[in-house]
Design a protein around this nucleic acid. Sequence first.
DNA 1: ACATAAACTGATCGATTGATCAAGGTGGCA
DNA 2: TGCCACCTTGATCAATCGATCAGTTTATGT
Lengths: 204, 204
Amino acid sequence: MRTMTKSKHTAPSARERILKTAKSRFATAGFDGTSTRQIAEDADVAQSLLLYHFKSKDAIWRAVMDMLFGFADQIADDDIALSELSIEDQLMFGIRAFVDLCAEDPDLHRLMTLEGRTQSDRLTWLIENHLRRYFEPTRSLIMQGQQTGLVRQGDPTMLYYSIIAIAGTIFSFEPEMTLLDPGNKAQDREQVLNLIRSMLFNDR
Amino acid sequence: MRTMTKSKHTAPSARERILKTAKSRFATAGFDGTSTRQIAEDADVAQSLLLYHFKSKDAIWRAVMDMLFGFADQIADDDIALSELSIEDQLMFGIRAFVDLCAEDPDLHRLMTLEGRTQSDRLTWLIENHLRRYFEPTRSLIMQGQQTGLVRQGDPTMLYYSIIAIAGTIFSFEPEMTLLDPGNKAQDREQVLNLIRSMLFNDR
DNA sequence: ACATAAACTGATCGATTGATCAAGGTGGCA
DNA sequence: TGCCACCTTGATCAATCGATCAGTTTATGT
């Protein structure tokens, strides 16, 4: 099987530079706030090249999302081997992976919060192509945990989004938190993990 | 002193209609995603009227924020009379007010999340004119609570933003949650309050 | 009734947007 | 070498953007 993965030591192709710069632009300025000319300038290519590799601005956005969730899928695939673990360990494994993901690339959550606020074609595409894949199994784990008293009571969807809310917000609002409290230490992963754990599980 | 408060039974003025429609447009599509012509169409006025009442699109955005935090300030003023309550009651009073605010108008948190992700003139304006007023006293309460063992350990800024993250996300991501799980009951205020309480305080 | 200020509209400006297209460049294979 | 598929560019399109301005309507005070 041929590999499409780029080598660590070859210069990134124009297509890869476009995706990378488009990701950070979309994440900070939003879809409408980003122009294809800005992306092209950051990637040091002509604006028309973006529409050669991708046929529209929407297609660029979807390619960025596919790239981001491509990394996440690698983690999710590891989860398959975990089904013999306890419910608590399975949940904490997924949560730790998500916290790591948010810490290493805040743009992922920034992009998702930009789309989750309003019904749109991009949101329905995102749900059907990526989000549901993570939501359904995690929601199932939460409900199993609730039946044994391990996980606190409450709507599973609320608990799921509370996990996402904490991990995502803490790492993606670093600009606001730094301006408000320059010396804060809010982005410590273990601290965030303990906070989520004490919120989700009973008696700890 | 003259009152600027509109009567309940008079038709809203054009200026009020502009602010109201601008708020929902900004909250869902973002600053760049919203055009003054869209706002004008929703408010049923000419586009040039927006720039008669406010001198620029930025000024419209700031007026929307002043309006939103004007409502919040009414609650904050009540807080002054609460200084004789316990730390826990003071914290829970503020948290309950914030949860109510997020539940009644998800646009407030939607607008704040659109600005908190990137350093910008709008973010610095927002912090100095509104956000710091709520952040500093609440952070102080959290630290006092930590000294007596009432509040769990951890960076106070992290805890502050975790409260905002849960309350804000649960109510402003209703579109995404409904698409993922149409029958969810995530937006129950008491449920959200209990979740935040068990995360913030020790031993409950 | 009249005058004056405030509220409001339609037309229009230059700038920027996403998208299209023809042409130039580059590297690999026959 | 010569061909061909792929990559890349600059020019250009119609549409839309925020903003300005001249002019008309509405409200207010005397």
